[in-house]
Design a protein around this nucleic acid. Structure first.
Lengths: 219, 219
DNA sequence: GTCTATAAACAGATAGAC
DNA sequence: GTCTATCTGTTTATAGAC
């Protein structure tokens, strides 16, 4: 790890993890066979057992890769917003929503990540623990504290936590229900253009909710 | 079909479909084996081929069962709301959201349906077509027209269609991300009590959005 | 570390007895 | 219609050559 020129072994490991992200995400753990995985990674079948101890080991390594990658991208971005003075928190919150849309809904590279994560959510396997504590919990917690800065409502109240799930859910749903959305909307793809339309409505909703919370007491 | 006392053959068919709903939803098409399916249905392995032509035939039959069941429950309920005079449409819309929460998020019987549907959404198979045209499209279309009655905004505008996806998504997400939600919220289950908390926030959001749309022109 | 050959378990489909 | 035995192919894991 951390070497300037990755050794052949690390290249193989990395190729297998990338293949795992694609195939596990697309077809599920049982649906992806070790042969497919090795073929996509241009590695041999035995390398999975050698490097990861077996199919399940590769699956866990994929989860760790997602945690690392999201940790490097999303976490610092949200941390910046969370550090804004309350006066700017509302604008920061809106910016965060835009980022979530373009990152999670439209970006094609993240597609396999997203499917992998969603699969773990609806059918938690041992890999779920790592995703929850590495991605899910910190992201949601940070969003809650941004909300507190923007509205004055307690970050860890039940209502705020539910509300932040909805904020995420209404957007992430476009990735989850992608096939149905595309048909119903007549979209041949969900790219930057469609993401803009989605973000527009999401931001309008957010503004409406924020406006409705103003003028209420927060004892 | 339609007989007073179901024949043994129909009991077997029905048991296999029920097992299919559970196992396909829980483990995916590849993840569920014909042996497990037959065992759960207390039928023999050969009966799958006999009654449905094979594993995929059973899968399609499960999709048809969902379409029929939802069609009998959700469709007429939404149709009633869609028939309300515009003055009552807003209340009807809120009632519809409450129904969606308790039906889709909290009811345990629907859990396997939901997982089956969600699985087809993220990885469409031949069964997806039936679910889309039998459940998804009619439900979404009806929701859009209810929205039009409540707000005067065109049911089939891009904005309305996106907004209705968000209305559904923010709620359905609690089913999709159930495992993560339970951990983060400290809920040991998502039952009627939790559904009420979810519906409360969803309705507050809806009211806020409706309020923000008032006083705008709809040329 | 890479790659191949093989083992042992498992899959879905089918033929035929009842 | 039900159920069992079996066929054929595929799966993961592993042993060992290089």
């Amino acid at each position: 790890m951390g070497e300037r020129f990755p050794s052949p072994a690390e290249q193989t490991r990395s190729a297998l993890v990338r293949a795992g992200l694609v195939l596990f995400g697309r077809k599920g753990f049982e649906g992806a066979s070790t042969r497919e995985l090795a073929a996509l990674a241009k590695a041999n079948i035995g390398s999975i057992a050698y490097h990861f101890g077996g199919k399940e080991g590769l699956h866990l390594a994929c989860a760790d890769f997602i945690v690392d990658t999201i940790g490097k991208i999303a976490r610092p971005a949200l941390a910046d917003v969370a550090a804004l003075p309350p006066a700017d928190a509302e604008a920061g919150l809106k910016h965060a929503v835009e980022r979530i849309v373009s990152f999670f809904v439209a970006s094609p590279e993240i597609g396999d990540f997203a499917q992998f994560i969603l699969r773990e959510m609806s059918l938690p396997s041992p890999a779920f623990d790592r995703l929850y504590s590495g991605v899910f919990a910190p992201t949601h917690t940070q969003l809650c504290s941004i909300w507190e800065r923007a509205t004055g409502e307690a970050a860890e109240s039940e209502e705020t936590r539910i509300r932040m799930f909805m904020l995420i859910g209404q957007v992430v749903y476009f990735r989850i229900a992608r096939a149905a959305v595309q048909r119903r909307m007549g979209w041949s793809d969900i790219g930057p253009q469609q993401a803009q339309a989605i973000a527009g409505v999401a931001l309008a909703n957010l503004s409406a909710v924020l406006a409705s919370r103003k003028g209420k007491d927060h004892p």
